[in-house]
């Protein structure tokens, strides 16, 4: 009898800290969930309680509607935008890994103190805002004949995912003891084999971090997605949703909420499934 009570007492301070955070962080999701099923009449009446369906009743679903979610899926190109976003995200992640893994390793291992300076330099490239770059990049995309093509995004996005991923992986590779590679080299591995068999498997948390982060950057990016893609069916979520669901000065709030909640849940689940490794990846170089 006393043991469970003691357990609760022991964990109480933790819960006192965690629960308010959880409520605050989960609230936007709850807000989106409720709003996406609201009738216009409910949403626009300022006298209504905004956190529930009005009129308030136990059978709350009778005050709700799915028509705005149906509108999103049936009257807009939302399913296409999801597919396009996934295609761009996956390909860009693959390209990013292809370049950032060897670059990060080289800067961490082979370049001595010069590597650190180069790493910072590469990271600074990531900080140049797309709002400055989209105009000079426009003629490049046009000359390559990639306007209104997902290939434009696949070409441009690595320009900011690779610098960030390289910088992140560089820090992570530095945490892996040099002795592990030396042992592999002594045992007859070439450097490439040592990389593939020893270094990369040990670096999995860092690689996963890069995967998730690069994918998130692709999902969130707006300027390039908006500028280089002009047709509705070719858009990604980040440019398609505001473009189709904000018309002039009219916002289609319920559909907007549905459109943002759906990918948010997918991304949240993705983050959570790799949470431990994600944290390890981010703090990889913190204690050296």
């Amino acid at each position: 009898m006393n043991q469970p009570l003691q357990g609760v007492r022991r964990k109480l301070p933790t819960y006192l800290v965690v629960v308010p955070f959880a409520v605050v962080l989960a609230f936007p999701f709850y807000w989106m969930l409720v709003t996406m099923f609201k009738e216009d009449l409910d949403l626009y009446n300022a006298e209504n309680v905004p956190y529930v369906f009005n009129p308030l009743q136990w059978r709350f679903w009778e005050s709700a509607t799915t028509k705005h979610v149906e509108f999103l899926f049936e009257d807009t190109q939302y399913p296409n935008w999801i597919v396009n976003t996934a295609i761009v995200g996956i390909v860009v992640v693959a390209i990013t890994l292809l370049f950032a893994l060897p670059a990060g390793y080289a800067l961490a291992r082979l370049s001595g103190s010069w590597g650190q300076t180069a790493g910072i330099g590469i990271f600074l490239v990531y900080l140049i805002p797309p709002t400055l770059l989209f105009l000079p990049l426009s003629p490049v995309i046009a000359r390559l004949g990639l306007q209104n093509s997902l290939l434009a995004l696949i070409l441009v996005y690595p320009s900011f995912t690779i610098p960030f991923a390289t910088w992140l992986l560089m820090g992570f590779f530095k945490t892996i003891p040099q002795e592990l590679e030396d042992a592999a080299l002594v045992d007859g591995c070439s450097r490439i084999q040592a990389l593939l068999r020893i270094v990369f498997p040990v670096s999995l948390p860092g690689i996963l971090t890069v995967v998730i982060f690069a994918f998130s950057l692709c999902v969130n990016e707006f300027i390039y997605a908006f500028t280089f893609i002009s047709s509705t069916e070719n858009r990604t979520i980040s440019s398609g949703v505001p473009n189709e669901l904000i018309r002039g000065d009219v916002f289609f709030w319920q559909s907007l909420m549905a459109a943002t909640l759906i990918p948010s849940i997918v991304l949240a689940l993705l983050y959570n499934s790799f949470l431990d490794r994600f944290i390890k990846g981010f703090t990889g170089g913190a204690f050296r």
Binding site: S138, P139, I141, Q147, F226
Partner: peptide, 11 residues
């Protein structure tokens, strides 16, 4: 968007 199209001379 117009600025981008003009910069690219395409659109």
């Amino acid at each position: 968007t117009a600025s981008s199209e003009v910069a690219a001379q395409s659109g």
